[in-house]
Amino acid sequence: MDAPIRSFNVNDPIVWTGNLEDDCTALWCGLMLRAEWMEEDYWWWRVCDTKRADVIIDDANSTDERFIDGEVSRARAESVAKQYINTISGKIAGKFVITKTFKVTGRGIVFAGYIEDGSLSSGNTIEFVTPFYIWHRKICGVEGLLDPSASKINTGLLIECRNEFEINELQEWEPENQVAVVFEK
């Protein structure tokens, strides 16, 4: 998986269309931002990358927060969109092949695999795709294990997660040798 090479103007304003009091959308830098009133005192939001088959970058379903009005919901979507564009605009540090995930009690989730290209370090951001979602998470630690029988150095990456639910979700994920892009800090 390579990060798409694309140009965009981050200085363009984010313009919302539709009914700002019910259901609205904004297209910005190849992203689609949505905000929708779901029920009394609850708004939902989502940001998708239209250049990558509308895969979800983040949404209200991935947080425990409740968004009480449209303005707050739209502001969160805009913040997520800007952070995503800022990350993918950064310099690529390398590529990492994720072969397996496992949970380390008290530490979080670890991706096992090997560095395919470049160099990785703590503080870098790793981009990987699970069904329906693009994830950007900070690398908190890098450990290399030399195995004389392996052609690559086995490497473990400790990944920052938001909560225990996210750790458990990633532990269940089967990466199938997915190539992840790593961006410099």
Rank of each mutant, 00 (worst) to 15 (best):
C24A: 12
I88P: 00
V181H: 02
S89A: 12
I109S: 02
L170M: 13
M1W: 12
M1P: 07
Q83N: 14
R52K: 10
Y133A: 04
S7H: 15
V182G: 04
C140H: 08
N177E: 11
K103Y: 06
A81L: 03
T63V: 11
G113E: 00
H136F: 13
D23P: 01
A180V: 12
D54M: 13
A77T: 04
F102I: 09
W44R: 12
S73K: 03
H136P: 09
H136S: 08
V110H: 01
M1S: 14
L27M: 13
V47E: 03
G106L: 10
V10S: 12
R66P: 00
D41W: 06
I92G: 01
T101H: 05
F111C: 03
L31T: 04
N19E: 11
G30D: 08
R76I: 10
V47A: 05
Q171H: 13
A93N: 01
I57C: 00
E78S: 09
I5W: 08
V142T: 06
K152V: 07
K95D: 03
D59Q: 10
I57Y: 01
A112H: 01
P13G: 05
E39R: 14
E174T: 14
E143M: 13
E78F: 05
F111Q: 01
S149Y: 05
E36Y: 06
T130M: 07
P13F: 06
I134A: 04
A77P: 03
E184V: 12
D12R: 14
F67E: 00
M32S: 12
V10G: 15
L170R: 06
G18Q: 09
E116G: 02
T155D: 08
G156E: 10
A93C: 03
D59H: 07
I14Y: 01
S62K: 11
A112D: 02
A75L: 11
T125Q: 05
G90T: 04
I115W: 00
E127Y: 07
E166V: 14
P148T: 06
N154D: 06
V104E: 09
D147K: 07
I56F: 04
N86M: 15
I92H: 02
L31P: 02
E36H: 13
I139D: 01
G94Q: 02
W173H: 15
